[in-house]
């Protein structure tokens, strides 16, 4: 028996809107630790890792570990029917073939339940090694989204370079080139507007902007995004989910042969 009650149901709505276009089907894993998902996009270039810790739920019951295969597009359709202020409860029976999403309005005057069929998904779980990243950039998530969107109107790939001068996002295309440099900025009044650059070693990596733009659909989840770079590793674009966990996107680099 599984029963997860999330007062801030909008978080789950936002998570689904962030990943449904990147991953078609995925297994949601439930354990005592929390509600999690790891999935690659169909071309195995990007990987999504989601964790919602059990402590973040108002009620969390998971009698035994359960893996539920879901079509994320269909799950997003159902969660879209929840109001932004609704409390969302996810329910499933052990060994059952469906999952129920229950939506309660804040004053309990509307209660809806949506039942969705589960599916068998053969997914490979990858071991993500703990890494010391050469550079970690923390910046406003809206700024990161803006940069990815702007650059994708010029070119298809972005070169992200971190030096002691700052972080540079560059692209080139048929019409010309673009470079955007952000410097560390901790002097702002609000911490969510800060840009913080931690650099051990200068690093420069090339990525497909199409994927970066897809990741930025998670912008409503967090005011800040963390971009972690190492020369021989996929970039990690992380959105923290308030008090509960994270949504991380890993993107393999483009490498000159």
């Amino acid at each position: 028996m599984l029963e997860l009650r999330l007062v801030q149901g909008s978080l789950l709505k936002k998570v689904m809107e962030s990943i449904k276009d990147l991953v078609n089907d995925a297994n949601f894993d439930c354990s005592a630790t929390g509600f999690s998902l790891q999935a690659m996009d169909s071309s195995h270039v990007a990987l999504v890792s989601l964790l919602l810790r059990s402590e973040g739920f108002e009620h969390y019951r998971c009698d035994r570990n359960l893996s539920m295969g879901m079509n994320l597009g269909n799950m997003a359709k159902m969660l879209k029917c929840a109001g932004n202020d609704d409390i969302v409860t996810v329910k499933a029976d052990d060994g059952g073939d469906c999952v129920t999403f229950m939506f309660e309005s804040p004053n309990q005057d509307k209660i809806a339940d949506f039942e969705m069929k589960l599916m068998d998904i053969d997914s490979e779980h990858l071991g993500i090694p703990e890494a010391e990243y050469e550079a970690i950039v923390r910046m406003p998530s809206a700024e990161f989204a803006r940069i990815c969107k702007d650059l994708s109107t010029i070119g298809d790939t972005v070169v992200i370079s971190v030096t002691k001068e700052g972080v540079k996002f560059s692209t080139r295309g048929d019409i010309g080139t673009a470079n955007i440099v952000l410097r560390q900025n901790t002097s702002v009044d609000k911490p969510e507007e800060a840009t913080i650059i931690e650099m051990e070693t200068p690093v420069s990596l090339t990525f497909a902007l199409r994927y970066m733009n897809s990741f930025t659909k998670a912008t409503p989840l967090a005011s800040q995004v963390t971009v972690s770079l190492s020369s021989e590793l996929p970039v990690v674009v992380e959105y923290k989910i308030a008090e509960m966990g994270y949504l991380r996107f890993y993107l393999a680099p483009k490498i000159e042969e």
Binding site: M40, S43, L47, H125, L126, P234, K254, E257
Partner: peptide, 14 residues
């Protein structure tokens, strides 16, 4: 131009 790598090149299957 540079060639797109896959995630599985970096992370091992469990």
């Amino acid at each position: 131009g540079p060639k797109q790598c896959t995630i599985t090149k970096f992370f091992n299957k469990l």
